[in-house]
Simulated scan of single mutants.
Amino acid sequence: MTDSAVPKHAQDLDIFDEWPDGLRAFFDGSSLATKIGFTASLVTNDANGHLRTSLLGIGELYVPDSRRLCLALWPQARAARALAQNRRAALTFVFDEAFYQVQLAFEPLPVVEGAEEELKALGGLVCFSGSIDTGEAQRVRYARITSGMTFELAEGKDATFERWIEQVEYLKKAAAQA
């Protein structure tokens, strides 16, 4: 079928089991200030079988290698409870004019040896490492996805940003130790 014979409403679907280079670079924990506003949706399944969505910012996500994603969650977050229980989730977001959905299998990250006080200072975060089962990037030919959910840091933005830097640094250590 030639390009002119492909319907304009056709969808392009890229399937992957390793992070594409652009995403791996985006989630590498660097230049967080330029990525403020990025929002990902973590969809988990709770104890009652209900799907729940948690919104995550760039300071809660880190990709240490081609197949993993590390998360830093508040210990009281329902996503933390759901991941501890069933260890499966989907991460969805918009990046580079595409809608991404990544299915992951999670394991808790052990506390970094000698960093108990650092973790306590960060609010007792619960950290997980997820391995990609499958990922999809969807694009349509008739439109460009220009953004997904985005946010702006409000009161306490400097403190939030500093916490994100510390959280991602902790995730880097935990991922390296795992």
Rank of each mutant, 00 (worst) to 15 (best):
N48K: 15
S131C: 14
A33Y: 05
L73Q: 10
S66N: 09
S131N: 15
F151Y: 14
T44I: 02
L153W: 08
I145E: 07
Q101R: 15
F27H: 00
P64V: 01
L71T: 07
G130I: 04
A47P: 07
A98F: 01
E169Y: 05
E113I: 06
I145S: 06
R87H: 13
E118R: 14
T44H: 03
A159N: 08
Y170I: 03
G135W: 08
G29A: 08
T134H: 10
S31K: 14
G59L: 01
E117C: 07
E155S: 15
L104P: 02
H9Y: 12
A121L: 13
D14N: 13
A25N: 12
A10D: 04
A77R: 04
P7H: 07
T150G: 15
P110D: 15
E18W: 07
A82T: 02
A84M: 06
E18L: 10
V102T: 05
Q11E: 13
R24A: 09
D12K: 13
G123L: 07
I15N: 11
T34M: 03
I145A: 07
V112S: 04
R87W: 02
A5H: 08
S129H: 00
C127P: 00
A143I: 12
G29L: 02
L56C: 02
E166A: 15
V112E: 07
F38Q: 05
W74I: 08
A80Q: 08
G114Q: 10
L71P: 02
L109Q: 05
E116F: 06
M149F: 15
L71C: 10
T34D: 11
F95K: 11
E118N: 11
R67P: 00
Q101M: 15
G123P: 06
F38G: 02
L32I: 06
V94D: 05
G37A: 01
R67S: 11
A137R: 10
E155Y: 14
L91D: 01
W19R: 00
D28E: 04
R81L: 13
L109P: 01
T92A: 15
A105H: 14
D46H: 04
A159Q: 12
V63A: 12
N86M: 09
R24W: 06
V111S: 12
L42Q: 06
T92W: 11
F106K: 05
A175G: 02
G130L: 06
I145V: 14
L122M: 07
T134F: 08
E136F: 13
E152M: 13
P75L: 07
A98G: 07
R24M: 10
F106D: 01
F151V: 11
A115P: 02
E113N: 07
L171H: 03
T34G: 06
A105V: 13
L122P: 04
L13R: 08
A175M: 05
F93I: 12
A33S: 12
T44C: 06
K120F: 09
E118Q: 13
T92N: 15
M149K: 14
R163K: 13
Q85I: 03
H50S: 12
P7L: 06
E116C: 03
Q138M: 15
A154L: 15
V140G: 03
L122S: 06
S129R: 05
L104W: 02
P64K: 00
L55Q: 12
A178L: 02
V94K: 05
R52H: 05
G22I: 08
P75D: 11
A178N: 07
T134A: 11
T92R: 15
I132A: 00
K173W: 04
Q11I: 13
E166P: 00
S54C: 10
D17C: 04
S147F: 07
V43P: 03
L42T: 10
T53Q: 12
